[in-house]
Amino acid sequence: MPHFQHGEIPHGFTFDENGGLIHYKYSIVVAAPGANQKDVWGDLYLSFGCAFADVKLGVSVHDGNKWSGVQPWDITDAGGRLAKKLPAGSQKIAIGRWKKSGGDSVDDNPASWLIEYV
């Protein structure tokens, strides 16, 4: 049976336009049961959606031993939600807004995350 959890991306930029950390207080960490546990949880998918403006997010996944490193995800207002399957063992997901350029000031438009086990 599928399971899901969702929430909002905090306002404020976590990362500058070069991927450097501005401040972690603008980010969120989502804890999840370890993905792909035999006979317990299925595949884990992470999705994002936004409205009124495009959003760039920095995402890092922890597999129980180490973080993956921050990867940029570009989410568009005009497109559908962006979803990716996460690796087996994924347990924590760090998410923060990433400036698209030095002049980017849109750090408060609606943006949300969704995790699903299927």
Results as ranks from 00 to 15, higher is better:
76 T>A: 14
56 K>F: 01
39 D>E: 15
42 G>D: 02
104 D>K: 01
46 L>I: 07
69 G>H: 10
38 K>E: 09
42 G>K: 01
16 D>Q: 05
24 Y>H: 11
50 C>F: 03
82 L>P: 00
95 I>C: 07
27 S>H: 08
90 S>W: 03
33 P>W: 02
29 V>R: 14
7 G>Q: 08
111 A>H: 03
43 D>P: 00
88 A>T: 11
103 G>Y: 10
11 H>V: 10
48 F>V: 00
83 A>I: 09
51 A>L: 10
94 A>K: 10
56 K>W: 06
63 D>C: 08
7 G>W: 09
69 G>S: 02
33 P>A: 10
19 G>W: 01
80 G>Q: 06
87 P>D: 13
76 T>R: 15
22 I>Y: 00
111 A>P: 06
67 W>K: 01
24 Y>G: 10
54 D>I: 02
18 N>Y: 11
63 D>N: 15
20 G>L: 09
66 K>M: 12
1 M>G: 15
113 W>D: 03
70 V>T: 10
38 K>W: 11
37 Q>S: 10
76 T>N: 11
104 D>T: 01
68 S>H: 02
36 N>T: 02
44 L>Q: 07
43 D>Y: 09
116 E>N: 08
38 K>L: 14
26 Y>K: 00
16 D>A: 05
49 G>E: 12
12 G>N: 03
59 V>R: 07
